[in-house]
């Protein structure tokens, strides 16, 4: 990368997840063991800890420092942060951190000029951005790859201007797309394969974070509790009714239903019993299929989201609570939560 295209180390320090940051560190030629035994290691660790606790409390913040050593330490702390998170292996925490990091980056990106944004975009694999008059254009493939995970309606390609492969976006959209890419980038490859030895050396950090987490114990861990049919979303309730009425259901419905029931903790036997009234019922085959979905083959399947349900024509009986959720499992959790809190009050 030529000097003209490169991003300065003090800037990289506020975007430490960029590939350029990783190569900067690489050029410093410091190994993991050197970092962990260096006298400044304590400082670096403290930065990592501050970032993780910041992510938990919603206060993660990065400001550009003029000091190069300071910036380098910030850069070094990023891979350490990822290692700590990997040792903890708590997907919700990792997700939380990725969101905090991307939100903070987004705040900083808003201060940058378009030229700089384009450099950051290239680092995040968005190469097609073109600026023409006051508009920005992005190739649709890069657009959908990034935007398909953003839930809001306006991000659907259907609701965009698309001409000869180019999607029109404005500056704000551009930053939001970068934010989404950053989240994906931070999550990419997590959890890392960190050796037990390193995890042991980081134990004081991980223990400390666990304490903080238990103190702030919000609903990071979802417990679906005992299966409660009353909390089933209408699509699942409908599928069950159909099966029980002895009507054959499509493969996609069967998959949705089974994976849903497996996920909320219903036993394989209980599910087989449910399917027993199906006209093409074959106990052996059904058991095999359910066990396969439950993960006997090594892959566990999560039930399809609302969008997928709708795509296959399985979103039936949508109600008001459905508008608030994007996944049938969340309906179940939320309904359960609403019901228990209703009884308390």
């Amino acid at each position: 990368m030529g000097a003209r295209d490169s991003i300065s180390v003090t800037t990289l320090a506020i975007y430490p997840f960029l590939p350029a940051a990783a190569s900067y560190i690489k050029n410093l030629n410091i190994g993991v063991t050197e970092v962990t035994t260096s006298p400044v290691f304590e400082n670096i660790i403290q930065k990592s800890m501050a970032d993780i606790t910041g992510a938990i409390h919603g206060t993660l913040s990065r400001t550009q420092k003029e000091d190069i050593t300071e910036s380098e330490m910030q850069l070094l702390s990023y891979p350490i942060t990822r290692m700590i998170l990997s040792c903890m292996d708590n997907p919700h925490l990792t997700q939380r951190y990725a969101i905090a990091e991307s939100k903070e980056a987004s705040k900083n990106l808003k201060q940058e000029k378009t030229e700089q944004l384009k450099k950051v975009a290239k680092e995040l694999n968005l190469h097609s951005i073109i600026e023409k008059k006051q508009f920005l254009y992005i190739h649709f493939a890069e657009y959908v790859q990034t935007a398909h995970s953003i839930k809001e309606r306006k991000w659907k390609l259907t609701n965009r201007r698309l001409d000869k492969g180019s999607v029109t976006i404005n500056n704000k959209d551009f930053i939001r797309l970068l934010e989404e890419q950053i989240k994906k980038r931070v999550l990419h490859g997590m959890p890392l394969d960190v050796s037990d030895e390193i995890c042991t050396s980081l134990e004081s950090c991980t223990e400390q974070i666990k304490t903080i987490l238990s103190q702030t114990q919000q609903d990071i861990v979802y417990d679906l509790g005992k299966v409660n049919q009353e909390y089933f979303p209408p699509c699942i309730a409908y599928a069950i009714k159909t099966v029980q009425a002895g009507i054959n259901i499509s493969h996609s419905t069967r998959f949705a239903l089974t994976s849903f029931l497996v996920t909320i903790g219903m036993s394989v036997d209980a599910i087989i019993e449910l399917f027993a009234s199906s006209p093409d019922f074959d106990a052996e085959k059904t058991r095999y299929q359910i066990e396969h979905i439950a993960g006997s083959g090594g892959t566990t399947y999560t039930p399809p989201s609302c969008t997928t349900m709708a795509t296959f024509g399985n979103c039936i009986g949508k109600n008001r609570l459905c508008d608030k959720i994007s996944h049938p499992l969340n309906y179940y959790r939320r309904k359960g939560w609403l019901e228990t809190h209703k009884h308390r009050s």
């Binding site: 649709f140 493939a141 959908v144 790859q145 935007a147 398909h148 995970s149 309606r153 306006k154 659907k156 390609l157 259907t158 609701n159 965009r160 201007r161 698309l162 001409d163 969008t307 795509t311």
Partner: peptide, 28 residues
């Protein structure tokens, strides 16, 4: 998921009818 966006575009799925005269999307 990205491919689904392409199909949804082709079938005009998820179209936002609000401000339909604003012409800020090809389908509008």
């Amino acid at each position: 998921g990205a491919r689904r966006e392409i199909v949804d575009y082709l079938t005009c799925t998820g179209f936002d009818y609000k401000n339909v005269f604003e012409n800020d999307s090809t389908w509008k």
